[in-house]
Amino acid sequence: MSQPTEIRIPDFFRKGIIIWVVIIIGVLVALITSIYTVPAESQGVVLRFGKYLKTVEPGLSYKLPFGLERVYVLPVRRQLKQEYGFSTPGGTNPTQFADRRARDIEKSMMTGDLNAAVVEWIVQYRINDPELYLFKVLDPEGTLRHISESVMRTVVGDRTVDEVITIGRQEIEEEARERLAKLVKKYELGISIDQIQLQNVNPPPPVQASFNEVNQAQQERERMINEANGEYNKEIPRSRGVADQKIQAAEGYALKRVNEAMGDVARFNYRFEEYEKAPEVTRTRLYLETMKEVIPQMGKKIILDEDASQVLPFLKLDAGSKGEL
């Protein structure tokens, strides 16, 4: 049985194939390592030999292959957040929350009146300077966590426990945001602070029941104060209305008496003027008018002439003729 004929490829052909394969692989690697895409909400920071070169906008871009240039993609147009004292499941940011032990330490604080409080909050921020963010500080987001905790402890430590838990939450948020923004700018983290939100602010669990009782008592006090104010607001206007009514009635009566007095004065002045013109006539007229009003009120009366003082006149005494002469 005959043996198969062996086909031998010349050595120069083998070497040529290997060279082409290497060239093709190198070209593919160069293409793969030189083409990159920056997402719409991000910017790319290009480094050449480890040194900052430029910042590129979203889209398809090219760089030197084989690791000569490296690109760090940063979500500069997306709002990031860090949570303190608690954690939301499914967070994608590695520095969004700390481990359980660190969270317990973060939220345990002391107020200005030496009371304990459990404070949980959120810091919302953006990367506004990629160059500073990458090269100025080794761990900018870790530094942000430490600064934020320090600022919150300072702000909470300047207030009473009632302000922290109830009425002072908005002021705490605003003051903490302003303080944190100044420190972030001072440390050149390349970050801007958008907002700080207080989440759960409560007293420690061992005193939670007592604190709730105090809150209930305060609410009951506020309710009673509001009811008293309501009664006050109801009674005072009514009393004022009654007082105004009496005052107006008195003013009306005073005006009436004044007008009557002025009328009497005017009438008297008028009669006096007439009296000065003809005193005898006026005196007689006034006498007759007065007698006209007085005599009918005297009942039975007998009028004698002064000349008949010694003569007994005949009088027709009729009981039914009252006032008849």
Rank of each mutant, 00 (worst) to 15 (best):
P4W: 12
P4A: 12
T5N: 11
T5Y: 10
D11Q: 10
F12V: 09
K15R: 13
G16F: 15
I18W: 14
I23L: 13
I25G: 11
I35K: 13
Y36C: 04
T37V: 14
A40H: 09
A40R: 11
E41P: 00
V45N: 02
Y52M: 02
Y52H: 14
K54G: 01
V56A: 06
G59W: 10
S61W: 11
L64R: 05
F66S: 00
E69V: 01
V73W: 00
V76E: 00
R77G: 14
F86P: 03
S87F: 02
S87W: 04
G91W: 02
P94V: 09
Q96H: 11
D104F: 04
I105W: 12
E106R: 07
M109G: 00
T111H: 02
E120W: 03
E120D: 03
W121C: 00
V123H: 05
Q124C: 05
N128R: 10
L132W: 03
L132V: 02
Y133L: 04
K136L: 06
L138A: 12
D139S: 15
R145D: 07
H146T: 11
I147T: 05
I147Q: 13
S148W: 10
S148G: 09
V151S: 06
M152L: 09
R153V: 00
V156Q: 03
E163F: 10
V164G: 02
I165T: 04
T166P: 01
E171D: 07
E175V: 04
E175A: 04
L183T: 05
K185M: 08
E188L: 03
D194K: 05
D194W: 07
Q195G: 04
I196C: 00
Q199W: 04
N202V: 02
V207R: 07
E213R: 01
R221P: 00
I225C: 01
I225H: 01
K234D: 04
E235Y: 11
I236V: 15
G241V: 05
G241E: 12
V242R: 08
V242K: 07
I247P: 00
A249R: 09
A249D: 06
N259I: 12
D264R: 15
A266S: 11
A266Y: 12
F268M: 10
N269T: 04
N269Y: 10
Y270R: 13
E276W: 12
K277D: 09
R283N: 13
L286F: 11
L286G: 03
E289D: 15
T290W: 08
E293L: 07
M298L: 13
M298S: 08
G299S: 11
K301M: 14
K301Q: 13
I302Y: 14
L304I: 15
L304Q: 14
P313E: 08
F314S: 10
K322H: 11
E324C: 01
